[in-house]
Nucleic acid binder design. Structure first.
Lengths: 237, 237
DNA sequence: CGCGATTTGTACGTATGTATT
DNA sequence: TAATACATACGTACAAATCGC
């Protein structure tokens, strides 16, 4: 972890909030109190507080203080960007990944539109089935730019592609745009998931970028509707 | 709109990005260039850039510059907190609201758990059907704290409750935690929406806070699955 | 390979404005 | 009115990453 002063203050405050040492509706220590306590400048304190505001844990009121929001639980991070492997480990679930298909294709007109890759871009197309506690819960359809994610193969795909991208290729992932919708599953994919007689799945479409702004991955993550939820915080204004 | 210096710089940069005057993968002007152009301190420039980073429009790389992400369209704000009225107006849709029921209740054990209001809290419970282009698309089930949202009635509910809360009661809304899931609609609500023979709906559960951190509203917004999508941006780390 | 120029990252200190109590 | 608390903004300094020569 980073050992910055603003992170110290951030972690200090976050611990107070998530462990309810200060209750929802109450105020965190004032900026001047925190500058004294941590022996830092006010800018540094404000930076830590700004992070908490962006996370939706607190809200500042001019002239009054910074208030803890009710329901400020750590579940806020569920919507976060993490790989299947990371998420499953964190929640101590028995999981495995089944590679259903692995091919190299080029974008045609339809696929270019859907993925926003240019026409005729060479892509890895991978279908992976995510099995949790012996049920096929998630179908991931990944498209990786062939020229960027060099040397991808089935063995890597069985483990963690993100791990390969970051630790072997030394590429840095900036973040992802996610679009969420509910759709009927395609006929050819129906038998890959353990669905009841309902054919609807929740689909998260991920557009994932490197730190230089280049799109390197488009993925559709198709979830059994009853095994899926997504959390976020939205500020007014 | 606020007339702050950092907002000027933010708006200047955002205009460049959304109108593709600088293309994805390219850099925005450096911090020192912007301080000269706007005649401000570096802190002020950095604040504007930080906002763009948080929105997922750009990504900064130490020592290199701030890069525009591909797909940096303004659709990023779809997930934003806005009332049905605001959203429909913005998109120029023909809409109307039908009040299906309006009652005053108290939380029992189940409802307290679901809404996170304390047991025996007095609430307004309102069911409203949102009709867009002559189809019943959304069913909103609102629970408002009776002691906070004083004087609510059917006429207000037919228009905009948020408008009443902010302009008449002079309360300030901080933001909302949103939890998204897909569920079977309740039998008694099935005929309120124009569903096909599928009984699944996308449900957004909203926990809405005032600026002092107090929960004043819990709402379940039930959407016809085929008329619904949700966008957000998630950063790595 | 090193060195300087550029660019972002962290941090400090100060001043002034505005809202709340 | 005075004290407190957050908001905006300026200026400075040094660190760390990147790039070109």
């Amino acid at each position: 972890m980073k050992n910055n002063k603003y992170m110290d203050i951030y972690n200090f405050l976050k611990e107070l909030i998530v462990n309810k040492k200060i209750k929802p509706g109450e105020k965190i220590p004032s900026e001047s109190q925190l500058t004294k306590k941590f022996n830092v400048s006010r800018n540094t304190v404000r930076r830590a507080i700004t992070m908490l505001i962006n996370e939706g844990l607190v809200n500042s009121i001019h002239g009054k203080g910074v208030f803890i929001l009710e329901n400020s639980s750590p579940s806020f991070s569920i919507g976060g960007l993490q790989s299947f492997e990371e998420a499953s480990k964190k929640n101590n679930l028995k999981y495995k990944t089944i590679i259903h298909s692995f091919e190299i294709i080029k974008t045609d007109k339809n696929l270019a539109k859907k993925t926003t890759f240019p026409l005729n871009t060479k892509l890895y197309k991978i279908k992976r089935i995510r099995n949790i506690d012996n049920e096929n819960i998630i179908l991931d359809v990944n498209y990786f730019n062939y020229e960027i994610i060099k040397g991808l193969n089935k063995i890597i795909a069985k483990k963690s592609i993100y791990d390969y991208v970051e630790n072997n290729l030394k590429l840095n992932i900036a973040g992802a745009k996610k679009v969420l919708s509910v759709e009927k599953i395609e006929a050819c994919e129906k038998n890959l998931l353990d669905l009841d007689n309902n054919e609807l799945v929740a689909i998260i479409k991920n557009f994932v970028y490197l730190d230089n702004g280049v799109l390197f991955e488009y993925t559709e993550s198709k979830h059994r509707y009853d095994k899926f939820s997504f959390t976020s915080y939205v500020r007014r204004i």
